[in-house]
Design a protein around this nucleic acid. Structure first.
Lengths: 344, 344
DNA sequence: ATGAAAGCGCTAACAC
DNA sequence: GTGTTAGCGCTTTCAT
């Protein structure tokens, strides 16, 4: 044991009476070690409680088997589901995770974040922060100097970027079409914040479905929340004021749909007959709302899994100096029909 | 730039016509560098886009300014809130996070997890996995060989361990006492899984409050869910069968309380007058349930913050070879009274 | 105020 | 099959 109290490869080597190189061979399961020597070294490793230093390995091999993950808004289910998916897949593929949580979604001060990841020798970066406001402006400046591959989650298609997103436009459209099929004529919308790309996509889907149903989309009121239940309540009240004759509402996420239904109950509006409600997210809980919520299910866990798969492929390509084509992957959401929209 | 494409301290030194030590001094803000030299080196660092290698630093300094965080169940709000708190505080204190997500709460195969953290030179470990079943048995074996401090979240008090937990017993007691005060006489309980320490504590709190109210706790039925809304529905149905005269129910978490209320609505049981309901967790959404849910609020974010604060103190002590007394920190939850329990 | 040498713990490349 | 040498990128120590 050295003076700092750590058992090193040298300690094992000395104890075994071999050179550290031989120990290294055992550690890396190289074939060219005598079976006896191997066995003996393994025993010594065990008895000394030796653990190889991944840091020293990273330094010499110039790779760490670590992925940098940048996220934000862990207080919401979506981002943490995605993180969960990332963690599961990373484990499967033998990568560790260095986690950075941004203080806010529209944080633009990304330089130190990226630097700290690079400094720690991550092999690739997963940018799991949704596109909000101008939080992608840094890309032009910094991306060219990035020495490792990077993949983005949940943002608009851009050339030469690897991106994995859910198709929010189609999701919003499906939600609204479903309301039309249920006989709704006057379908309002409570959206997420307009600086969110996802919110804008869902709005566009809603508008597209209205237009296809022969309704002039511009004339239909909508209001804006910030994804929280609290904001949903306020946004829905104001929507009701503007659009009292509304008979269906597409709500930008399940949490806001929850409070929309609470307000409706308070006012004696019957769901689904007076007002049909569709949410977006597919939270497990939404099946237990009152009434059970029809929603657009998006698989955020899978989003994370795919991101890891892609970044690892990019890392492998990068190390072999192969060029790899940037991909834009679009996951399709699905409609879950439940009581809040189903008219007998 | 070296053959591997990374800008190193040597590149900066050569460019500046100084030795790498001088550059190192600039990097570490040492006083003994001539102002001109410092300025020039800083410029060169900027223009070359040089980023010091945290890996090389970790190796020589034998510390990484990285915390290992072990968690599980990120699909639930609680663990991700805690992680969020950990991330916020870690950032504030200048630590990075190496994240491990266990495949299940009762995962006992912790050896490789701990080893991988140690191999990566983490300065300390936050074990943010709730105590479930026998998932603490490894402590005896492995803790003695741990070369870095470790702190545990959400587990029973044990001598010589540093622990931060919420006081679930008191929380369960407060919930039940509140129901008693509302005039409930027959207070059932839908608990979490019995192999969870937190679930058992909440049960004990419920029993204690019943006893103090002069009710024989043993005779009062309870059923068991697994924290999910789905399981809550099933557990509540079975509780109703056993205890049809029930006029109040303490539910082990908010998600199960959600489905409890859905079932109650389905069966025409009026809340709170026929049945008063209290949950546990303090999810932001529970204020928007129908009716708004009375619950026991626990601050999981703060739990994470405190854990980081403590582990950093332990790390500092450890490096200065100071002994530090293990602490058991018990956070108090609070009652949030809302419509689901409030009888006029 | 600056530089030279040593070394953190490990592996790659080569020698024997 | 095993050992030797060199070096990853940085900081520490000591010298000038």
């Amino acid at each position: 044991m050295n003076r700092r109290g750590r058992v090193t490869i040298m300690d094992v080597a000395k104890e075994a009476g071999v050179s550290k190189q031989t120990v290294s061979r055992v550690l890396n399961d190289r074939p060219d070690v005598a079976p006896d020597t191997r066995k003996q070294i393994k025993d010594i490793i065990e008895s000394l409680g030796y653990r190889p230093s991944a840091v020293a390995r990273s330094l010499i091999q110039q790779r760490s088997f670590t992925l940098g993950v940048v996220t934000a808004g862990l207080q919401y289910l979506g981002p943490s589901q995605t993180l969960n998916g990332i963690a599961d897949k990373a484990k499967e593929l033998g990568y560790a995770l260095l986690l950075i949580v941004l203080p806010s979604f529209d944080s633009k001060d990304t330089r130190p974040i990226v630097d700290s990841l690079i400094a720690r020798q991550v092999d690739g970066i997963i940018w799991a922060v949704q596109e909000v406001g101008e939080n992608r402006v840094w890309l032009q400046d910094q991306l060219s100097t990035l020495p490792v591959p990077i993949i983005f989650l949940t943002m608009a298609k851009r050339e030469n970027f690897s991106i994995v997103s859910v198709d929010n436009f189609t999701g919003g459209k499906m939600a609204t079409q479903h309301l039309v099929e249920q006989g709704c004529q006057k379908i309002g919308h409570v959206s997420g914040p307009l600086d969110w790309w996802e919110a804008r996509q869902r709005i566009a889907g809603w508008e597209s479905a209205l237009t296809e149903a022969g309704i002039e989309a511009d004339s239909v009121p909508r209001t804006e929340g910030n994804w929280s239940s609290r904001s949903g309540a306020a946004a829905f009240k104001s929507l009701l004021d503007k659009y009292p004759q509304m008979d269906g509402v597409f709500v930008g996420n399940d949490q806001m749909a929850l409070s929309v239904m609470q307000i409706a109950h308070d006012r004696g509006i019957r769901i689904p007959n007076d007002l049909a409600v569709v949410g977006f997210d597919g939270l497990a809980e939404s099946a237990y709302f009152w009434p059970a919520l029809t929603t657009i299910n998006q698989n955020q866990h899978e989003l994370g899994c795919i991101a890891v798969q892609e970044i690892v492929a990019m890392i492998d390509a990068h190390r072999e100096e192969r060029k790899i084509q940037p991909k834009f992957i679009f996951l399709q959401p699905e409609l879950l029909v439940r009581g809040s929209s189903l008219r007998k």
